[in-house]
Amino acid sequence: MLKILFSPAESKKIGGEESKKELFGSSGAREGILNEYVNIVNSGNEDTIKELFGFKRLSDCKPYINNIFDAPLMHAIERYNGVAYEYLDFDSLEPEAKEYLKLNTIIFSNLYGPLLGGDAIANYKVKQGNNIGSFIPDKFYKDRFSYQLDLYLANCEILDLRAGHYDKFYEIKKPYTTLKFLKGGKSVSHWAKAYRGLVLRAVAQNNINSIKEFMALEIEGLSIAEIRVIKAKTEIIYNIME
């Protein structure tokens, strides 16, 4: 089976109607950091809240000032709506492709840590790279969840579509495949987000279950320029076609 590692997004959809359930790994392992987040958000300390969320105005913070333990829940794969998720366009997928993403995508949240796409989470805000009180999210989740992820991924192939920052949450200890996108011979950042979303969409639509199947997949707007193998990492370099 193929598992896809993916990044979250700063922006998120509001609302949700999912039922509360156990998150990937163990909800108990998250208790400390989630409680710290709730304490900050409901502290009334405007400067601390704005710093955590990465906003300059308190009015921008208001959609996120809630108790995440009682807030409406939405599947993680649906909650985020940044560039990659806009190009994934989850809502337009067929039911089988949606279920594929819920089961086979692992998203590395700045608050919740590693989540399956189908895990139900609240609307929240933590600016990438920020601490949550005394907690350093990437270090905290790397320490708490690496062993569980190693076990979970032991018999799976891995397609790593994370942005670089989220490598800090989990170091892959087995062979894996990652992608790089070039336009005009230069590596891109904004368009890399878009094409990660398009790649994830194509993988789900075609029910890709192995790296071999992925290598044979034609993705609109991309052509393979080179494949590099560096120790455990296979890097597929795509040209973005004009």
Rank of each mutant, 00 (worst) to 15 (best):
L2P: 08
I4R: 01
L5A: 02
F6Y: 14
S11H: 08
K12Y: 00
I14Q: 08
E18V: 03
K20Q: 06
K20N: 09
K21F: 01
E22P: 07
L23T: 08
F24V: 08
F24W: 02
G25R: 00
G25I: 00
S26C: 09
A29P: 00
E31P: 05
E36V: 06
E36N: 04
Y37H: 04
Y37S: 02
N39V: 00
N39P: 03
V41C: 07
N42P: 04
D47K: 15
D47G: 06
E51G: 08
E51M: 04
D60Q: 14
K62H: 06
N67G: 01
I68R: 04
H75P: 02
E78G: 07
R79T: 05
N81F: 00
G82C: 11
E86D: 10
Y87P: 00
F90Q: 11
F90W: 08
D91C: 05
E94P: 04
E94T: 14
P95A: 05
A97I: 01
A97F: 00
Y112H: 07
P114N: 11
L116E: 07
G117C: 06
I121W: 01
I121T: 01
A122E: 01
K125D: 01
Q128T: 13
Q128L: 10
I132E: 03
S134Q: 11
S134H: 07
P137T: 09
D138A: 14
F140Q: 13
F140A: 12
Y141P: 12
Y141A: 14
K142I: 05
K142S: 15
D143A: 10
F145S: 10
S146D: 05
Q148F: 14
L149A: 04
D150P: 07
Y152N: 10
N155Q: 13
C156Q: 14
E157Q: 15
Y166H: 15
K168H: 05
F169H: 09
E171F: 00
E171R: 12
K173D: 09
Y176C: 07
T178N: 12
L179E: 08
K180M: 14
K183W: 09
K183F: 13
K183M: 09
G184V: 10
G184R: 05
W191I: 11
K193P: 07
K193N: 13
A194R: 14
R196Q: 09
V199P: 03
V203S: 04
N207S: 13
N207T: 09
I208K: 04
N209E: 09
M215D: 15
M215V: 06
L217C: 06
E218C: 03
I219Q: 11
E226R: 15
I230Q: 14
A232C: 01
A232M: 10
E235F: 03
I240K: 09
M241C: 06
E242L: 06
